[in-house]
């Protein structure tokens, strides 16, 4: 799968690139779903990195699972986690033990990449130090501005907040800190007048 083409977006939305193996003392890769392909491409082009590479992989919410291909790379450390939440304690520990010079790569959905970047920022790295490549689903991670709950894998617009039940429209405004787009009540001014949902984020 090739790199995703994005329409021009407002300046709060991140712009993604292609993973380029960089010089560094250690290499941490975190990917979900189709993001495995970006990790394979990067490590195949720079096999010398494998001996210092640590790959954390979360199969996609849509069922895509490339664990086998990643295991076949033969990296120093490989870990398959069932969800990002399950992977976070390991990620946090790796970051806490790391030294400057470690390279961080994230690939897959926007929500995954943003959560990796937020964890790296919390550990003190500049946001720009995390390389990101989008692969696979465009499903969004959306924070409800009203109840603050985050709904994962949003494909419809508007959609129903999985926490408070309000019907939210999805803005392009994106918070790197929250790793989420913003959802705002669509019928606040005219309660009950809700347009039909369309599948905007496949």
């Amino acid at each position: 799968m090739t790199k995703t083409e994005f329409e021009p977006a407002i300046p709060s939305r991140p712009v993604y690139g292609v993973l380029h193996p960089a010089v560094g003392s250690a290499h941490l890769f975190v990917a979900d779903g189709e993001g495995a392909g970006a990790v394979c491409d990067a490590l195949t082009s720079a096999p010398a990195l494998k001996a210092a590479a640590h790959v954390i992989y979360i199969p996609g919410a849509n069922g895509s699972d490339h664990t086998g291909a990643l295991q076949a790379l033969g990296v120093a450390q490989f870990h398959r986690a069932p969800s990002f939440a399950a992977a976070l304690p390991r990620l946090t520990k790796v970051l806490a033990d790391a030294h400057m010079g470690m390279q961080i790569y994230a690939a897959g959905t926007e929500g995954l990449m943003a959560q990796v970047a937020a964890a790296a920022q919390a550990a003190g790295l500049p946001y720009e130090a995390v390389q990101m490549e989008h692969r696979g689903s465009l499903a969004r991670r959306v924070q409800c501005v009203h109840c603050k709950g985050v709904t994962e894998n949003v494909t419809l617009d508007p959609f129903q907040c999985s926490h408070c039940g309000l019907t939210l429209f999805v803005r392009d405004h994106f918070s790197r800190r929250l790793a989420a787009f913003q959802g705002v009540c669509i019928d606040a001014e005219d309660p009950g007048q809700i347009p039909a949902s369309v599948e905007r984020f496949k």
Binding site: H146, L166, D190
Partner: peptide, 9 residues
């Protein structure tokens, strides 16, 4: 925006 459903109407 937090309270938009309250003041929007």
């Amino acid at each position: 925006p937090e309270n938009y459903p309250k003041w929007g109407p």
